[in-house]
Design a protein around this nucleic acid. Structure first.
Length: 208
DNA sequence: TAGTTGATCGTCT
DNA sequence: GACGATCAACTAA
């Protein structure tokens, strides 16, 4: 089925703020423990590398953020707050550390398995299942072992899915980056406005 | 329902 | 040695 066709390399070889809204509605396919889990992306944030004080790559390359410098189409997975993982899609050419943080998704296939990974009963609200970057990672069994992995082949893939219509996309300021000064207000958060799986409501500025 | 806080540790200063 | 691109449990009203 074409919804499960991997996105082409050129899709990722663009700036993060261009790729981000186009990731909405795409499918994240995870093969783990003999099961296939599929989630539809409904909320993302773009991080613009060296030009963006909120980006982990703002101060250059380190051992932690090395995956962000790979060519677009790879995963960048990092550990925060001593207990959570977050998954990013690396964008741009090799050496350009742009990335898109995946903040929320809706279960398409394997919902019961995703709930089990989260320690929840099947049928819980979408927001509790994968509405938040760390929740999304836990539901799909994503951890550091996938840092630097390709998203076009292997056990974690990003596929064509059902791209969101432009009119359905809302945008606003990014979450949890208050330390970044004016950049904290840049409208680089994109979401499918009417999804019930958003990590939190979009503040202000709507439009496509 | 809104606001506050504790958990917990890898990474960088 | 300080501090997170977070979450869930708890409090107050």
């Amino acid at each position: 089925m074409s919804r499960f066709r991997p996105l082409p390399r050129v899709f990722f070889a663009r700036p993060a703020d261009v790729v981000a809204p186009e990731l909405l509605g795409r499918f994240l396919v995870r093969e783990v423990g003999g099961e296939r889990l599929v989630a539809r992306i409904v909320e993302v944030e773009a991080y613009l590398g060296g030009d963006d004080p909120a980006s982990h790559a703002y101060r250059g390359r380190t051992a932690r953020n090395a995956a962000m410098f790979l060519a677009g189409g790879h995963a960048y997975v990092y550990f925060v707050y001593g207990m959570h993982f977050c998954l990013n899609v690396v964008c741009g050419a090799a050496g350009v550390p742009h990335a898109v943080l995946l903040r929320a998704a809706e279960a398409v296939e394997g919902e019961a398995a995703m709930a089990a990974r989260r320690g929840l009963a099947a049928g819980v609200a979408p927001r509790a299942l994968a509405g938040g970057p760390a929740r999304l990672c836990e539901a799909l069994g994503v951890d550091r072992r996938l840092d630097g992995a390709s998203l076009r082949a292997g056990e974690l893939r990003l596929t064509a899915g059902e791209p969101a219509a432009r009119a359905a996309i809302a945008r606003g300021a990014r979450v949890g980056v208050g330390y970044a000064g004016a950049a904290a207000r840049w409208p680089l958060r994109f979401a499918i406005g009417d999804s019930s799986a958003l990590s939190r409501p979009l503040s202000a500025s709507r439009s496509a």
